Amino acid sequence: MKLLILGGTEFVGRAVTEAALARGRQVTVFHRGRHAPPAGVTELFGDRTGADGLVALAAAAGESEGGAHTWDLVVDTWSGAPSAVRDAARLLAGRVGQYAYVSSRSVYDHPAPAGLPEDGPLVDGASPDAGADAPYPQAKRGGELAALDVFGDRALLARAGLILGPWENVGRLPWWLQRIARGGPVLAPGAPDTPLQYIDARDLANWLLDAAEHGLHGPYNVVSRPGHTTMGELLDACVRATGSGAELRWTAAEKILAAGVEPWSELPIWLPPGELYDTMHQGDVSRAHAAGLHCRPVEETVTDTWDWLRGLGGAAPQRPDRPAVGLDPETEAKLLTA
């Protein structure tokens, strides 16, 4: 199988690249050149947001002859303007066998009730022609529409939820690991038995490749089953991985919210009970699991992420289009001593 990965150097894209290489696949990555891809790939350079950003991709794609495809599969992790997905899909029409788009469960109309499957209501106002000003849910749904418009039943839509693991460039699990590594009392939010639902980027990558090889298409909620782990198990794994001896101080959600602390952004991953929690951590994932999704233990995700961070000297990469996450030490100290 010959793969084209649009991106392929960061987080999910890199996980797909590494998984494909491990399977002995021929991999081409198309990226802006800001980060080095894994060794063993063919590189194409271009900026999808530029007027001539797809020139190198068009030259490499060439013209299909005798029905042969230049690549068997393209994996697209784009989360910006849907028009960029549209332009890439149109360019690759007839030159790629299947188009896998890494989407998001944010495409469902908010709030998404607990147990919502793939045929649930979707956000309004999405368009494959939208630009960079499209809100994230509409941008991801617009990307889906762009892939479907061109590839139809050869389009695979992986609606991921919370994504964790090595190469994370959003900062959620890295923040917890870095905070716990400092040791001392640590503000632990809510109840330790709160179930979580997430996906390790490497498990997402492996499922994508398996699904494509089996010719799957359409939307799949690609995330662990609800309760694959808990907030307590996650943070305990962080304590063990860092070896810091940090003391987790479990604090009631009501106290945290009364102090004006923002769940998800200031205390990453965690959400108090309610609509947002049901949307993020209670989705129906039976379809993806029936199609072979396997999720590794949280201990492995946490340990491997910590090992990766230490290899970087402790400084995690940060996407420039996402705000930094985490609770400032002063606010944490006030809550711990209140």
Rank of each mutant, 00 (worst) to 15 (best):
L3W: 11
L3D: 08
L6Q: 05
G7H: 03
G7Q: 05
E10A: 05
F11W: 01
V16G: 07
T17C: 04
E18Q: 14
A22E: 15
R23K: 06
R25Y: 06
V29R: 05
H35T: 12
A39W: 04
A39L: 11
V41W: 02
V41A: 07
L44F: 00
G46S: 08
T49M: 05
L54D: 12
A56S: 11
L57Y: 03
A60V: 02
E63I: 10
E65M: 08
L73G: 08
D76I: 01
W78C: 09
W78H: 08
S79P: 05
S79C: 12
S83P: 01
D87M: 12
D87T: 12
L91V: 11
G94I: 04
R95L: 10
Q98R: 15
Y101H: 08
Y101T: 11
V102P: 08
D109I: 10
P111M: 09
P113T: 12
D119Q: 15
D124M: 00
A126D: 05
D133P: 08
P137I: 03
A139Y: 01
R141L: 15
A147T: 07
A147N: 12
A155E: 14
L156T: 03
R159K: 12
G161S: 02
L162A: 12
L164M: 13
G165W: 02
W167E: 13
W167T: 15
L173F: 10
P174I: 12
R179G: 00
I180N: 00
I180T: 04
P185H: 09
L187P: 09
T194H: 06
Q197G: 04
Y198C: 11
I199C: 07
A201E: 00
R202T: 04
N206L: 15
W207T: 13
D210F: 12
D210I: 09
A212V: 10
L216F: 06
H217S: 14
G218K: 11
S224R: 05
P226M: 01
H228W: 14
T230S: 11
M231D: 09
E233D: 12
E233K: 07
L234Q: 05
A237D: 14
A237P: 03
V239C: 09
A241F: 08
A241L: 07
T242P: 10
G245E: 10
A246I: 14
R249V: 15
W250C: 05
W250F: 03
W250N: 08
T251W: 01
A252T: 09
E254Y: 00
I256N: 07
L257V: 15
A258S: 15
G260H: 08
E262Q: 14
P263T: 13
S265G: 06
E266Q: 14
E266V: 06
P268W: 00
P273T: 10
Y277P: 05
Y277W: 14
T279A: 14
Q282N: 11
Q282P: 03
V285R: 04
A288L: 05
H289D: 04
T301Y: 00
T305Q: 01
W306N: 02
W308C: 07
R310N: 15
L312M: 02
L312S: 02
L312E: 03
A316W: 07
P317N: 10
P317F: 10
P317D: 13
R319G: 14
P320M: 03
A324Q: 14
G326Y: 00
A333H: 08
